[in-house]
Amino acid sequence: MAGLAHALSSIRRADSLAGRSTLASTIDARAKLLASLWVVGVLASFPSYEVASLLPLALFPVVLLVTGEVPLGWLCGRLLLALPFVLMVGMLNPWLDPSPMASPWGAPIAAGWFSLASILLRGLIAVSSALLLLATTGIIRIGYAMSALGLPAVLVNQVLFLYRYLFVVGEELARTVQAWQLRRAGKPRHGVPPHQLKLLLAAVLARTFQRAMRIHQAMLARGFDGQLRLPSAPRWHLRDTVFLLFWIAFPLLARLVDIPLTLGRLLTGA
């Protein structure tokens, strides 16, 4: 199925981005993970009508984008896929919330427009922060960062295992679905009918079980005793401290001081 094959190839693409060595990729994964969480958290804490005051936080994804040398086209493509749900939920705001708010040209604007714009901007910044965290770090280093930050080894290992077998199991499923499509006499349909999906999934699932058995044997053969050991995290450098401190302080500043408005006052002398 196109969706599955496409998903796998876009994971590969994101991975190849993360594999390059760039300025952003030299920052410790723990620092980047914590900074991203903090930025998204602070972003969420802004009142729902704020638009302009959110803008300074865009610096975070922009810095990752530039120092990570991530192609803008890739980011935009991913953003387009990620934003529709947010848009759907916020779209009606201008009608649901018509209370007037001030505008520079006198005529008041419905408050809903502000909250809609705010939601979109939040979506843009949060989504691109997460995507760029991945594109500059890679899932494996994020996994190890999670384990270094105290998340259970079972969970972290599960993430890494899932990621490892995505391609093996995903391609098996994609091939099975493709074989089914080829024999379906080409009738275009909206998705796989449930009774056929059930058969497809059961076939692939049975093979997946067998694979799990073999993998387990391979683990046992190499001394696995039920306890997962992850290699220790890489060294933490001064630059990681600086990076993290800056990205804790800057969002806080942006939250406490309306930077655009202050700038605007200075510039216009208002």
Partner: peptide, 21 residues
């Protein structure tokens, strides 16, 4: 461990396949 890993991959992949309602 092995079962969880591959079943996770399986569910991830299966979520990408739409079924018709």
């Amino acid at each position: 461990v092995a079962l969880m890993g591959v079943l996770g991959a399986f569910v991830f992949a299966a979520q990408m396949i739409n079924f018709s309602i």
